[in-house]
Every structure is written in C-alpha cells, then in structure tokens.
C-alpha cells in the first residue's frame, strides 16, 4: 500500500516535470517570447567549440558590447589548447572574463555508445558551472561543449532555477543542411541564427541576418 503511494507520487512528479519540459519547448519554439531585461548587465556564457567554430564565435564576440555582456565565462573542452590562445587574444583589452573547462563530450572516432556516456559525464560536470554562474544569455555555435551546456541550462529552466536565453549561431559552413548540434538545438535555443538564406527553408525557426563571420 505504502509502495503504491510512493509510486503514485513519483509518477505525478515525473508527469509534472515532463509537462513542464514540453511546455517550455512549446514556449521556446512556438510562442517564441525571448525578450529578457536585466538591471545592469547580462551575465554571459560563450560555448567554445573547436577550430573554425571557435574563430567564428570569437569574431562575433569582438562586435558585442562588452559592457553590456559581462561578466563573460568561456566554457571550453579540457583538452582544447588552441582555443585558449585565441580567447586571450580576443579579450586582451578586457579583464571581466574567465575560462571554465569541462570534459569533452565526444572525441573524434569515438563509438556511439561511449559518446553517450561521455556526454552524460560532461553534462554532470557542467551543472555546477552553470548553476553557480547563473547566466542570462548563452552563445553557442557548436559542436564541442555546446550540447552539455544547453541541456543543463534548459533543465535548470524547467526547474525554475534559472532564467536565461540561448542563442545558437549555425556555422557559415552549413549552406543547405543543419549540423547535428543545430538539429538538436533548434528545439531548445531561444534564438537560432543561420548564415545562408537557403537554411531558413530547412529550419522553421531560423533567422537570417546575412553573413556574420
């Protein structure tokens, strides 16, 4: 009898959480009310991917108003050395930024199963970073650290522990098809930006502002 009650309670909680998840996805994708106002500045997270993706995102950072988007935390994979140099180069006149490292969710040539495990591990390591920093806006252009960061931010939002906006910018490389990260994040990101007009036909929510990088 007691077991049944516990089961019923757990089921109700699970159902409520599931409904909240679905409602938030509905709010993000259909209602699309992504306005956000903060008193002083926007706490910003930048998900650093790899190679060309890093260069693309940092070029955009150069054009952002640093006074508005501060403080900034760059999240990068723990074995990513070259991105660190590029970040310090971009931020050389600023001091209101920090770097945070998380395990890489998927290495090249890793099998499908083990990449699921390592993505879960990376997600777990991301949780305290996001929870403690409490970002207002997250910029990402995939791949690398993007998915764990956005998943954690989304779940914290579901639990009303965080109110933030995710901005996903698809790489200039993607002309006719979305990247895997893009395919996933089109349901979670508040703002999805593509850099080729053709991609708007593929992604129902994508916004196009011309070529950014």
């Amino acid at each position: 009898m007691a077991l049944e009650i516990v089961g019923a309670i757990l089921f109700t909680i699970l159902l409520a959480f599931l409904l909240r998840v679905l409602y938030l996805i509905y709010e993000i994708t259909i209602v699309n009310k992504c306005e956000l106002t903060r008193p002083k500045s926007l706490r910003t997270i930048l998900c650093i991917g790899s190679g060309g993706h890093t260069t693309e995102l940092l070029r955009l950072v150069k054009n952002l108003n640093k006074k508005k988007y501060q403080p900034r935390v760059y999240i990068l994979a723990d074995n990513d050395v070259s991105s660190e140099v590029k970040i310090h180069e971009t931020e050389k006149e600023q001091s209101d930024y920090t770097l945070s490292r998380i395990p890489r969710s998927r290495n090249v040539q890793q099998s499908y199963f083990s990449s699921v495990i390592s993505t879960l591990y990376a997600t777990l390591c991301t949780l305290p970073v996001i929870y403690n920093f409490k970002p207002d806006v997250i910029f990402c252009n995939g791949p690398g650290t993007c998915i764990p960061v956005c998943v954690v931010a989304f779940l914290l939002r579901c639990l009303y522990l965080l109110d933030c906006r995710i901005v996903f910018i698809e790489s200039i490389c993607r002309v006719r098809t979305l990247s895997l990260t893009g395919k996933i994040l089109q349901f979670f990101a508040d703002i999805v930006v593509v850099q080729w007009p053709q991609l708007r036909d593929v992604c129902f929510r994508a916004k196009y502002f011309g070529r950014l990088t």
Binding site: T37, N63, R165, V167
Partner: peptide
C-alpha cells in the same frame, strides 16, 4: 554582424 547585434540588443535589454 551589425544587424544581428542590433536585433540582439532589442531582445536582450539592460535597464
């Protein structure tokens, strides 16, 4: 990227 940055500024605001 200025059109995009302006769009962001209109959505994400600071009082």
């Amino acid at each position: 990227s200025s059109i995009f940055v302006n769009y962001l500024d209109s959505i994400l605001r600071v009082e």
